[in-house]
Design a protein around this nucleic acid. Sequence first.
DNA 1: CGCTTCTTTCAGAAATTTGTGAAGTTAAGG
DNA 2: CCTTAACTTCACAAATTTCTGAAAGAAGCG
Lengths: 165, 165
Amino acid sequence: MAEASGTARDPEAVSRFVEHFAAQLVEAGLARMPARVFAALLASDAGVLTSAELGEQLKISPAAVSGAVRYLSQVHMVSREREPGSRRERYRVHGDQWYEALTNREAIIKRWEDALREGVTSLGAHTPAGRRLEETLAFFEFVEKEVETMMDRWRAHREKRFGRG
Amino acid sequence: MAEASGTARDPEAVSRFVEHFAAQLVEAGLARMPARVFAALLASDAGVLTSAELGEQLKISPAAVSGAVRYLSQVHMVSREREPGSRRERYRVHGDQWYEALTNREAIIKRWEDALREGVTSLGAHTPAGRRLEETLAFFEFVEKEVETMMDRWRAHREKRFGRG
DNA sequence: CGCTTCTTTCAGAAATTTGTGAAGTTAAGG
DNA sequence: CCTTAACTTCACAAATTTCTGAAAGAAGCG
C-alpha cells in the first residue's frame, strides 16, 4: 500500500494516524488542537517540528499552532526550542518527559485533595459524609505515592527493553 | 458559623463543598452537570439521593438530572436503584466502586493502545517515528498492569485503615 | 384500566468554545 | 537602525455544547 521503505514517508498514512490518535486524546479530555499538534509531533521522525510545518501538515492557522503549543508546553507535554540563529521555533516531544507529564496530573490531584480536606472539616469528620470524603482523600494520597514508585519501575523496565534513550 | 453538631447539616456548607469539588472535577475534564451531581452524592450523608433531591439542591431541571445520572452510571461512578414500590429513582455512590471506575479509564487506554499499534504498523516499526510509538505503547501496557496490582494494594490498605466497608 | 407521579426524550434558546484574520510584537540580519 | 521573518495576541464569526420547558413515556395505585 504505502511505500514504507527507504526514506519517504506516506503523508496520508501519517495523517491517518495523527487524526485517529488525536481523536482518542480528545475523547480523553484534551482540546482538539493540542491533541492534533501533539499527535503530529509523536508521529514525526525526528520528534521535532517547526510552527510552519505543523500549520501546513494540519491545515491550521499560525494562531492555532501558537495556542496549541502554548498549552502543550505549559503541561510539559512538549518543549520548545529556539533553533539558534533563526527566529524559527521548534517543538519537541521528549520521549521520556511526556508520559511523566501524563502521570503528573499531580497538580490536579493536589487540588482534589485540598477540596476534600476542606469538605471533611466543614461537614464534620465524624459525620457519614465526612467519613466518605476522608476515605476518598485517603485513596488519592495512596495513589499519589504509588504513582511515584511506579514511574521508578517504568524507568527500569524501559531501560532494560529499549536501552537508555 | 455552622451548627455542625447533632443531626442538622448546614446546607450552605454542603453547597460550598459541592460546588468547589465539582469545579475541580470539571477542570479535570468532567462535564459540569455530572460533576455537580456526583459531588452532591459524595457529600450526602447516606450516599444516596433521589432525582428530586438532586434537582432541588442543585437548582437544575429534571432533564438535567436525567442526563447527568445517565452519564454517571454509564461510567460506573454511581449506580441507580429503584426504591421498591415507588417510581422514585435513587442514585448512589458506592464507596468502593467509584474510584475503581476512576482508574478504569481502561476502555480509553485500550483505544489509545489500538491507535498506537496501528501507527507502528503503518509508519513502519523500524522507523524512528515507529519506534517512538512503540515505546509509548509499551508505557501504556506497563501502566495497565501496574494499576491492577495497585488497586489490590489499595484494597488491602483500605481494609486495614477503615475496616471492610 | 384510567389517574397520577415520576422520568426520559426532544427541539430549541442561550452560553460557551473554537479557530481565524489581522494587527501587533520581537528579534535576526543587513 | 531599518527591514523582514516569525510568532503572538485579540476581536469576532461560526460551530458546538449545555440546559431548559414541554410533551411523551413508564409504572404504581386505586
